[in-house]
Simulated scan of single mutants.
Amino acid sequence: MRLGRTARLVLAAVTGIILVVIYVPLGVVLVNSFSTSASLTWPPPGFTLDWWVRAFESAGAREAVLTSVQVAIIATVISLVLGTLISIALQRFDFFGRDAISLLIILPIALPGIITGIALNNFFRTIMGIPLSIWTVVIAHATFCIVTVFNNVIARLRRTGTSLEEASADLGAGLWTTFRLVTFPQLRSALLAGGLLAFALSFDEIIVTTFTAGSGVTTLPIFILNNMFRPNQAPVVSVIAVVLVIVSIVPIYLAQRLSGSEQTRR
């Protein structure tokens, strides 16, 4: 498709505006994390590393990071197992209601986070009578992290087809042997990409976490929200926000590289 000069200029201008709106605020947060001002005045009166030192020495921040990492790892593992099994079932077998189940699997990622949070809060506390804890957060995160794994795995299964699996079965291999030696090697990059995306999605989730975390559970996003407006805490929050952005970018970048490398090889 060829675009005229005017259309290209308009498209470039719109793209530039969108990038500015997205990334300039992130740049401001980065600069404020080095500001000498405790109230984040702009422009910064000076620059210092004191806030970074205070952030890394904060016991509350370290505990929040550890909690977020634990929740993200467990939710990712659950998502990898369940997402893979569901993908294989929906792609390799034909049964009544398959399309409906596929829609139900994808739906949590499309629902507003506040709806999911309220629904899960009512389910845990009212229906099941389960007190809110770190495990309710893990379950809540797994409900939407499964979608990222499911989308990656089912897309790979659609591209690979069933010829190699059928050949393995014809040669006498059992179901588990075929999965271990044939299916799994074809899914490794898709699983890794889906797992990285699921980890990033869980690590910085706040809305669903707010409704499903108990009083003693503080993830890093909740820690940031609780300390954002406290005196002399704004620069420390900026430091933590910068770290959170970096931690979120790394798995997304790796997942993108893995997906791109796989498409190039093919």
Rank of each mutant, 00 (worst) to 15 (best):
Val81Ser: 02
Arg188Ile: 08
Ile240Asp: 00
Gly16Cys: 09
Ile118Tyr: 05
Gly174Ser: 04
Leu3Glu: 08
Arg5Ile: 13
Ser133Ile: 01
Leu40Phe: 08
Asp170Leu: 12
Gln263Asp: 13
Leu3Gly: 09
Met128Glu: 10
Thr6Cys: 14
Gly113Cys: 07
Phe184Lys: 06
Pro43Thr: 03
Ile222Glu: 00
Ala255Arg: 06
Ala200Asp: 10
Ile249Phe: 13
Arg125Ile: 13
Glu165Ile: 05
Ala12Cys: 12
Arg98Tyr: 03
Ala167Pro: 11
Asn151Arg: 11
Val10Phe: 15
Leu192Trp: 07
Cys145Met: 09
Pro131Val: 06
Gly97Phe: 03
Thr162Gln: 14
Ala193Cys: 07
Gly174Met: 07
Gly60Phe: 01
Leu132Phe: 04
Gly195Asn: 02
Thr209Cys: 06
Arg54Thr: 05
Trp52Ile: 02
Ile222Cys: 05
Pro251Glu: 04
Phe93Leu: 11
Ile224Trp: 00
Ile222Arg: 06
Ile105Thr: 10
Asp94Asn: 15
Phe223Thr: 01
Gly117Val: 00
Val10Glu: 11
Val137Gly: 00
Thr136Asp: 09
His141Thr: 04
Ser261Asn: 13
Thr67Ala: 14
Ile106Glu: 11
Ile109Glu: 08
Ser133Thr: 09
Leu104Cys: 15
Met228Ala: 14
Arg125Asn: 15
Ile130Lys: 04
Ala61Asp: 07
Ile134Glu: 12
Thr84Lys: 04
Val242Tyr: 01
Ser58Lys: 00
Leu82Gln: 04
Gln256Pro: 03
Met128Trp: 10
Thr143Leu: 07
Ser35Asp: 09
Arg188Met: 12
Arg158Gln: 15
Val65Arg: 00
Gly97Asn: 02
Leu192Gly: 11
Ala155Tyr: 02
Val153Tyr: 01
Thr36Arg: 11
Thr160Met: 13
Thr15Gly: 12
Leu120Val: 07
Gln263Leu: 15
Ala61Trp: 10
Leu164Ile: 06
Val14Glu: 10
Ile154Arg: 13
Ala169Asn: 02
Gly260Ser: 15
Arg156Tyr: 05
Phe144Gln: 05
Arg257Thr: 09
Gln91Phe: 11
Pro45Val: 01
Phe199Gly: 03
Ile22Asp: 07
Leu171Glu: 06
Ile139Met: 09
Leu80Asp: 00
Ile154His: 04
Gly216Asp: 15
Leu181Gly: 11
Phe34Glu: 00
Phe203Tyr: 09
Asp170Cys: 10
Thr136Gln: 07
Ser33Tyr: 01
Ala75Ser: 12
Arg92Cys: 10
Gly174Leu: 08
Ala119His: 03
Met228Asn: 12
Ser259Arg: 13
Pro235Ala: 06
Met1Glu: 14
Leu66Val: 15
Tyr253Val: 15
Ala61Phe: 11
Phe211Arg: 04
Leu107Ala: 08
Phe34Val: 02
Pro221Lys: 06
Gly97Glu: 03
